[in-house]
Amino acid sequence: MCGVCGCGEGHIHSHDEPHDHEHAHEHSHDHGHHHHHEHSAEHSHAPGLTQARMVQIEQDILAKNNRYADENRRYFSERGMLALNLVSSPGSGKTTLLTETILRLKDELSIAVIEGDQQTARDADRIRATGVPALQINTGKGCHLDAHRVGHGLESLNLPEHSLLFIENVGNLVCPSAFDLGEAHKVVILSVTEGEDKPIKYPDMFHAADLMILNKTDLLPYLDFDSAQCIQYAKQVNPRIKVLSLSAKTGEGMDNWLTWLRAEMALQRIAYA
């Protein structure tokens, strides 16, 4: 049962037992069917002829997600936490960037990770191996994390004040762009093996992000990737976007990323009136 919304959904689980997630999905599926039955029953009992009328709604389709995102944002700000939503296509090196970042910062900061993937707990296992708490959220058929699921994740993680929370979203450059999770910033990671035109091919994501990380720069000598062109495309879609180039593997450029993180942490520690 959920303290945020009372939904009783079984989506969040620590994956200690391998069959956990299968069970949770079956449960929510059953629930959906039951729901529909209720409505068709209501419908058949409705009185015969009624007058058609217009109802004004004027509601954002994502209003519900945005309400949960606001709750999460309030949670983060009350605890002086920095939450970052890491988005990218699959295979850009998000998890390696995280493990390398955690190894460098875990002695000075309290860090935790929420991992979103369609299936498996492989990424959370990789994070836990660094010694920080990680929670895996399997989205099943879903293509993105939503603020509701992240809210449940926060309840079960129960992090100390002034923590740094990374939310590693599902590898997908399209859908996660529209879903606010309550994060301070979306950080988009693009590896140089992907092609410099990704920012204009998937403009929504680069428009939504505040920081772009160009990863795997150690491979640049072997590729035709044009970094300057890539950055220009990103600024075309989002003139405010900041860019850092690094290689999580060799450590080149990691210092700038750590400096950015420390500065953002410092900003969260300021108690704004």
Partner: peptide, 9 residues
């Protein structure tokens, strides 16, 4: 992306 209105009965 908004729901503007509905025609209902």
């Amino acid at each position: 992306m908004r729901i503007k209105e509905l025609e209902v009965e």
